[in-house]
Design a protein around this nucleic acid. Structure first.
Lengths: 225, 225
DNA sequence: ACCTGAACACCGTTCAAGT
DNA sequence: ACCTGAACACCGTTCAAGT
């Protein structure tokens, strides 16, 4: 009995489109969203693209390369706000949606051990410095404020994403605190790590307010120490 | 010829001391310092302790466990500053040596995808909130300022450690900027990423000044938005 | 109680070979 | 130019077995 009849020649596998750097990055982000940092594997990435793992290395030099690209990518997905005449508000919008972009991909802050120097990130920095210089900042003041704001968002996104991923560890630490009132008097009084007390959004916005209030308009220098 | 004579029974291998959680953590930090995040392997860690890789699992449940312990450990190595009557200066000292602790172990910021809730970190937070409350902060204000400062150090340490590790990528991004004066007019004018312009220490200290200046002493609320 | 040895199911990456 | 297959040198972790 010739079995060849039953061997349906499946339509030539329809390798949907040719492999490309861009398709790889998109698939990588998708995989990271689903499985987290530990879930991204060259083999799994290849599988998602219907290709051998080794094929990826034609388009990409290394796995680190993929991670760099994925990290920059998520900032490309969130458009820059439109610049207005209110520079202070421009700064606020940018910083807000910067944080939002990272929290939408909770693996992103974890990856920020890698230099954030991709074009999308640079475009954001350009926007930020442009708004700040419209606010009258220049030279050292400009550099300091840029770093302050950038470090604040990065730190905030990292902290918040971490807390969201960590399951019971949060609550466990809280119990550790309440169990040792002598070691942590102030933390107990202030309700540190008490989840119901304040929201992340609230704390972030108020902190941003404080930083923005810092910025002296006009020629006055930063407070000297 | 009896060879047994020549088989010097080497002194019983002197497994220097019994294996323990603590010894594991110390060895882990050492390995991380030498080889970076990617260099820490359960097998290598075991080898450094003169033990089989599988032996580690008696004292530790998982590799993640080791990483958590190592991260908290480095904050135990840097003592808390002595509290003085100048609360503002106490805050400054704490934040400064917090950053220093992380920069001394450049792999640390990379690991801060893990929740920083170890006892050493909590002790630092207690110190911080204590100083701030002596400065008159409470409730929301206290929570906001705590987060603001913590996120700032974390972001700063992460950014700086990253830049130090990244070899040519820094310079490469700088060239990308200078090559596109139309896309990055402000970044070019401000000399962004120009290494010689300002030092990390300088930028960090001035940013800290700005944040500290934010803190209203007395009953006055934070600037409302 | 503490450690070893062998084994399992993975990794990232290289390289010759195919088309 | 682009992709496959086989192979190399690793991983983290489990589990029975030794002492």
């Amino acid at each position: 009995m010739p079995t060849s009849i039953w061997l349906r020649e499946d339509p030539p596998a329809q390798r949907s489109s040719p492999l490309s750097r861009e398709r790889i990055v998109v698939a990588a982000v998708q995989l990271l969203d689903q499985l987290g940092t530990g879930g991204l594997t060259m083999r799994r990435l290849a599988q998602a693209l219907d290709v051998t793992a080794t094929a990826l290395y034609w388009h990409v030099t290394t796995k680190e390369d993929v991670l760099d690209l994925a990290l920059d990518q998520i900032f490309g997905d969130v458009p820059l706000p439109a610049a207005t005449t209110d520079w202070r508000n421009d700064v606020r919008s940018l910083i807000r949606n910067w944080r939002a972009a990272m929290l939408r991909h909770p693996w992103a802050p974890n990856l920020i051990g890698r230099p954030m120097l991709g074009p999308h990130v640079l475009a954001r920095t350009e926007f930020l410095q442009s708004a700040l210089s419209r606010g009258g900042l220049a030279e050292l003041e400009l550099a300091v404020t840029t770093r302050l704001l950038a470090n604040y968002v990065i730190g905030a996104a990292l902290t918040e994403a971490t807390f969201r991923q960590a399951g019971g560890e949060h609550a466990q630490a809280r119990r550790h605190i309440t169990a040792s009132p002598t070691a942590y008097p102030v933390l107990n009084a202030s309700g540190h790590l008490d989840p119901g007390r304040w929201t992340d959004d609230e704390l972030f916005e108020r902190g941003l307010d404080a930083v923005l209030a810092t910025i002296s308009t006009g020629p006055a220098p930063l407070t000297t120490r």
